[in-house]
Nucleic acid binder design. Structure first.
Lengths: 210, 210
DNA sequence: TAGATTGTTAATCGATTAACAATC
DNA sequence: TAGATTGTTAATCGATTAACAATC
């Protein structure tokens, strides 16, 4: 009973559905059709129904979808019912920004540690968490599980630290360093390449104008 | 003589090519075949050749591609020969992280202003730039062109400010607020939705394990 | 029951890969 | 000239959209 593999195109869209459903919930709307959602999100109703049906029937003919139910189901698909411990490697501005963002905690991502190599930064407190030296990583992971590592450090150090963390059984990497990590098959990586994002914006700008 | 529209799949890949070519350049490699690049980047050689040929022939049969030439051509396609003035709206950690990142300036993105609504933050200096109150936006844009606005502020304020900036002729938005901006056709938007990115990582993690 | 809207199959469209002639 | 590798056409694969029967 192998689950059919979900295409990455679909996975990319799921969090956006989740966001819109959260908003509908907040606005007290308890029911929506693919047609209505289609208008709001500017995608086709057909795509919405196809996407949801990858995971089974969440709707009801003649009625549409129950917002709260659909919201929770997509949350489960995304794994948001878990509580994950996240460590941040690199306590620069970006690391601090992540550490201070309350939205993550709300979704079950708890910042359990912040690490840096710079002795000037070690010991500093960010959002109530003391920055530890990277030498402590081994001891730290022995004491409590680390589910996700956010890499907010310069690219030349990223690969090495990531490899070291993979050895320590960290299974997921949120990579902000502008390099491609080369890690074992069994770990998962999500890249946030800001420099590339800005270049895409630049491209769109050039394309539009001169 | 209408240019053929480049698919967004191709545009997404261009900055990654650019990054790899920059690295090759740094390592003093002056020539590469689609085959070799294919191995490094883990994409097919066929795709590489197709992608490049959207913009004309950059290579030479029997030889491959000249790294420096290809690098510069892709840079031009991405619009990196321009110098853009970027303003940052929201001087929180994320705004500060962008303001302090030296990589952007290197690629021609100059931070020309930082704005915030919070009077406690206004006046503070970030990377040598004084934070201005958002009330100054109109006067500021009258004095110097603003090409790109980075929106690093809470989602409930983002749409309103974006609309106001669009009125002031800002043509490009780098949106970090977790909302979809609804702006006129002629402006371009690049979204960086960190919460969504983290959910995708969570999905991959669930998919892989339990 | 009649109307609405899903779930799902079929048709279309677009992107990726394969293959090879052109050519350096 | 022979070998290598591009540029490009053709084949395949996958994703999106359209259509409609099932059903609430």
């Amino acid at each position: 009973m192998e689950n059919k593999k979900i295409s990455s195109a679909v996975v990319k869209r799921l969090p956006r559905y989740y966001r819109y459903l959260s908003e509908l919930l907040e606005n007290g709307i308890d029911r929506i059709s693919s047609q209505e959602l289609s208008k709001k999100m500017k995608v086709t109703a057909s795509q919405i129904r196809q996407d949801f049906n990858n995971f089974g029937g969440f709707g009801q003919q003649g009625y549409g979808y129950n917002v709260s139910f659909l919201h929770d189901e997509i949350g489960k698909i995304l794994g948001l019912e878990h509580n994950y411990n996240v460590i941040i490697i690199g306590a620069g501005n970006l690391g601090q920004a992540l550490a201070n963002y309350s939205g993550f905690v709300k979704r079950g991502f708890r910042i359990s540690g912040i690490f840096d190599i710079n002795p000037m930064v070690v010991g500093k407190e960010i959002n109530g968490i003391k920055v530890l030296p990277v030498e402590n990583l081994e001891a730290f992971t022995r004491e409590q599980p680390v589910h996700i590592a956010a890499l907010t450090l310069p690219k030349d150090q990223a690969s090495k630290i990531a490899g070291r963390l993979a050895e320590l059984e960290v299974k997921a990497f949120w990579n902000f360093a502008s390099t491609d990590l080369n890690l074992p098959e069994h770990v998962v990586v999500e890249n946030v390449h800001l420099a590339e994002s800005l270049m895409r914006l630049s491209y769109k700008l050039s394309e539009k104008n001169g």
